[in-house]
Amino acid sequence: MPAIVHFEVQFKPEHVTDAAKYLAETLAATRAWPGNQGIEALVDDADPCHILVVETWATTQDHDDYAAWRATPEGRSALHEVLAAQPSKQVYSTTLPLGL
C-alpha cells in the first residue's frame, strides 16, 4: 500500500496571501523526489491560514528518505519563516479491512 502523508501548516496571517507561492516553491522538490506519486494542498474553509498538504508516496521508506533530506541544510526550505507554528505530520500506510 502507498503511504499517505498529512502535513499540516499554519501560516502567519500576514503571509497567507503568499501561501501558494511558498508552498509551490517548497513542494517542487517534494514532487520531484523519487517515490512521490502526488501532492495537493487543501485550505481549511474556516481558517485560510490552516493548510493540509496531502502527499502520496510509493512506500513509507520513500517518504522517510525524503524527510531525512529535508532535515539537512541542503533540504531545508524557507517555509518555516512564514509559519505561525510548527507543522504537524501524520503518516498512514496501513488500512483496516472494513468488509464493505
Rank of each mutant, 00 (worst) to 15 (best):
D44L: 02
V9E: 06
S88R: 12
P73Q: 02
A24S: 09
L98D: 12
W33S: 14
T72Y: 11
P48D: 14
H63E: 13
H50S: 11
P13N: 01
R76T: 15
T72L: 08
L23H: 03
I51E: 07
S88Y: 10
W69F: 15
E81P: 07
D47V: 01
P87K: 00
G38S: 02
T94L: 09
G99E: 15
T26P: 01
H50W: 02
Y22R: 01
E81L: 10
T94N: 11
A24D: 13
A78N: 14
Q86V: 14
I51L: 07
Q86E: 15
F11H: 07
V5K: 01
L27A: 00
K12P: 05
H50F: 01
P73N: 03
P34K: 00
E8Q: 13
V9T: 15
L52Q: 07
E81F: 01
P13C: 02
G99F: 13
P97T: 14
A32V: 03
L42K: 02
Q37S: 09
A29V: 07
D64K: 03
P48S: 13
D64T: 04
V53M: 11
A3N: 04
L96S: 15
E40I: 03
H63N: 11
F11Q: 01
A19S: 13
P2R: 06
T60N: 02
T56M: 00
V16I: 04
I4E: 15
Q37D: 05
P97A: 14
W33R: 10
I39V: 14
A24C: 03
D18R: 00
V5D: 07
A41R: 06
S93R: 03
A29F: 12
S88N: 02
A19C: 04
P13I: 00
G38Q: 03
E55L: 03
P87G: 08
A68E: 14
P73H: 05
G75E: 15
A78S: 14
V16W: 00
C49Q: 11
E81D: 15
E81N: 11
T59P: 09
D18Q: 10
K12G: 06
V9A: 10
A41M: 10
W69A: 11
A46N: 13
A29L: 06
H80I: 05
D65R: 13
V43F: 02
L27C: 03
F7M: 13
P34T: 07
L23N: 04
Q86K: 06
L27P: 03
Q61K: 08
A71N: 15
F11A: 06
A71C: 12
